[in-house]
Simulated scan of single mutants.
Amino acid sequence: MSAVRPQILVIDDEPQIHRFLSPALDAAGYEPKRADSGQEGLRGIALWSPDAVVLDLGLPDMDGKDVLVRAREFYAGPIIVLSARDREAEKIAALDLGANDYVEKPFGVGELLARLRASLRQTADRDAPTGPVVVGDVTIDLDRRLVARAGQPVRLTPKEYDVLAHLARHVGKVIGHRDLLTAVWGAAHAEDTQYLRVVVGQLRQKLEPDPAQPHLIQTEPAVGYRLGG
């Protein structure tokens, strides 16, 4: 029996986009689905529950950002916005409304596929419960989103928890700055390492016996961070 291929719904009114993107998705191991308008796209999301959505902002019947808002009311999968609008404000608005990534037209299919793979990996990491991870006297319960130190609950901000949980899902392995930033803040912030430094510093204050000599969250200079080991 052949494996089920991830479904990717492309919502775009340009036939040429579908003509070259559908074969590329198929060749990359995905099952492409097509919608030519915002309403058709919303129906497709509801009907197929695709693994990811590629959404154009310039649709004939409604603005793509409105599609994004309505889709986020019932769909939690990755949405990659595809648009000829290159203004920074458009990108920020789309990301703030729930897009996982933003790719400008014209685009290379290789880049789009790479961003699609990254978004799907992030979703898999987020959705895969792995039970409690114990490092020293710190317990991270990924199923219940709870953190304890020496048996006592530790209150974390959402971003602090997301960074810690991403490290915990790969305990003992070095996670690069870009991977952590993309997983927690989104691709638009892949270079904003100052965000990461601040949050890691806050986590060390809450979880390390001596934040100045960290053992729980270790720094790999110029590379990233590692939890434990």
Rank of each mutant, 00 (worst) to 15 (best):
K65Y: 06
G131Y: 08
L120W: 08
L25H: 01
A124Q: 13
E208P: 12
G29R: 02
R72W: 09
L180C: 09
R155Q: 12
H189M: 07
G64N: 11
G108D: 11
N100A: 15
W48E: 06
L55P: 09
L57R: 02
V138I: 05
L142D: 02
L203Q: 04
P78V: 11
Y75V: 05
K159A: 14
Y75N: 06
V163N: 04
T139L: 10
H189I: 05
D137N: 13
E111S: 13
L21A: 12
A114L: 14
L68D: 05
G229K: 05
V223A: 09
E90K: 04
D51M: 11
P209S: 01
R19F: 07
L156I: 00
T130S: 14
E14P: 04
L181V: 02
A99S: 09
A46N: 07
A52N: 10
E191F: 05
G77E: 03
E40Y: 04
T193P: 06
D101C: 08
V138H: 01
I8Q: 01
L227K: 00
I80N: 00
D96R: 13
G131S: 10
Q194T: 13
V4S: 15
K105T: 09
V223Q: 15
D192C: 09
P6A: 05
R204M: 03
R85N: 12
L82I: 06
H189Q: 11
A168N: 05
P158D: 06
P6V: 10
P129W: 01
G98L: 01
L57A: 07
E191T: 11
Q16F: 11
R149Y: 00
A187G: 08
Q213N: 09
M62Y: 08
F107R: 03
A99C: 08
D13W: 04
Q213H: 11
S49T: 13
A3K: 10
R115T: 03
G77M: 08
V154C: 01
D61P: 05
I8W: 02
V109F: 06
A188K: 06
F20W: 11
A183L: 05
Q122D: 08
V171K: 00
W185F: 12
R70V: 09
L42R: 09
K159G: 07
P50K: 09
W48M: 07
Q205D: 10
L59D: 04
A3T: 14
P23I: 07
D192T: 14
H166A: 14
P60D: 04
D101M: 04
P32T: 11
H189Y: 10
L59W: 01
Y30T: 12
Y30I: 09
G229S: 13
A46E: 15
